[in-house]
Computed example of a mutant assay.
Amino acid sequence: MTTIKQALAEAYASAPVSEVIIDTLEIRHPSFVDDDGNPTAIRICRDRLDFAAYLEAGAPMNAGQLVTFLAVPFDFTLPALAEGKVPTLKIVVDNVDRSITAAIERAYQQSDPIQTTYRPYLVSDPSGPQMNPPPNMVLSRVTVDVFKVAGTATLNDVHNWPFPGRVYNPADFPGLLR
């Protein structure tokens, strides 16, 4: 279960002028590699300036490391929590950087899913995202044109998650053996 840190909840509730929320997206795919052939991710923030922050310890890539989110105009709609519906995150990224468009087009033509992570940060606290853990979603229904890249991200098969989330087995719980 994702929890919002108290500082972010206060920033949402009171909107103090001294506290700015930086929304970030990380988009991952096996086809995203740097010049040396190492796996990389597209990291963007909704701001006018690039934003350097630390990722959470359980991040899929560069866990616990300081990374830079590039300033790219984008918009999104956070998932609504409604019973019987899969939460979806609608994303629209302005096509200001053709390298993002090219990477998404290459990735969408392959069978591996495009993964995305939404992380909100506070400018005053770049030590980690304000959601723990941040939601990891699968990007689908992607459209690319000369003006924007748009897509819908959904939680990966949320209806088939086990409940409770922990599996009780004899290796971890010897008392289950008779």
Score class of each variant (00 low, 15 high):
E26M: 13
E10P: 00
G175P: 00
S124T: 14
V138Q: 09
N136C: 06
N38F: 15
S18P: 01
W161A: 08
D34P: 05
M1V: 13
S31E: 13
F147W: 07
D94F: 12
P30W: 09
A59S: 14
I104C: 07
I91W: 02
I100T: 00
T116E: 02
E26Y: 05
S127H: 09
D34K: 08
K5L: 15
G128R: 11
I22F: 10
V142H: 04
W161T: 01
G84E: 07
A53V: 09
A71F: 11
I42C: 04
F51P: 01
D23Q: 11
V86K: 12
L49T: 14
I22H: 09
I22R: 11
I91S: 02
L89M: 12
V149Y: 00
A11Y: 05
V93G: 06
I27V: 05
I42T: 05
D172E: 05
P170H: 02
A53Y: 05
K85E: 15
L89T: 07
D97F: 11
P16H: 03
L89I: 04
F69P: 04
L177N: 02
D97C: 02
A153L: 02
P16I: 04
A82G: 12
G58L: 15
T2G: 07
L176V: 03
A7M: 12
V33F: 03
A53T: 10
D97H: 12
G165H: 03
S124G: 10
N62P: 04
E26K: 09
G128K: 10
R119T: 04
P113C: 10
T101E: 11
D23H: 13
I104T: 05
Q6M: 11
C45D: 09
S14G: 03
V149H: 00
F69H: 10
G58Y: 14
D36H: 08
A7T: 15
E10D: 14
I4C: 02
A9G: 06
N169H: 09
T77S: 15
P16N: 06
T88P: 03
E10M: 11
Q109V: 05
A11W: 06
L81Q: 15
R48V: 13
Q65G: 10
F51S: 04
E10T: 11
D125E: 12
N62M: 15
A52R: 14
L177F: 00
N169V: 11
L81T: 13
A11Q: 08
Q109P: 00
R46K: 15
T24P: 00
G165M: 07
G151H: 04
A63E: 08
K85R: 14
N136D: 10
Q6V: 11
F51K: 05
P162I: 05
G37C: 12
P164D: 03
D112S: 14
D47A: 15
F51A: 03
N160V: 08
F76N: 03
H29I: 09
V86R: 14
I22P: 08
N95Q: 12
D112C: 03
A57G: 06
P39G: 08
V149D: 00
Q6N: 13
P174D: 07
A107M: 01
K85W: 10
P135Y: 06
N38Y: 13
Y121N: 05
Q130T: 03
L155A: 00
A13V: 08
A59F: 07
F51W: 09
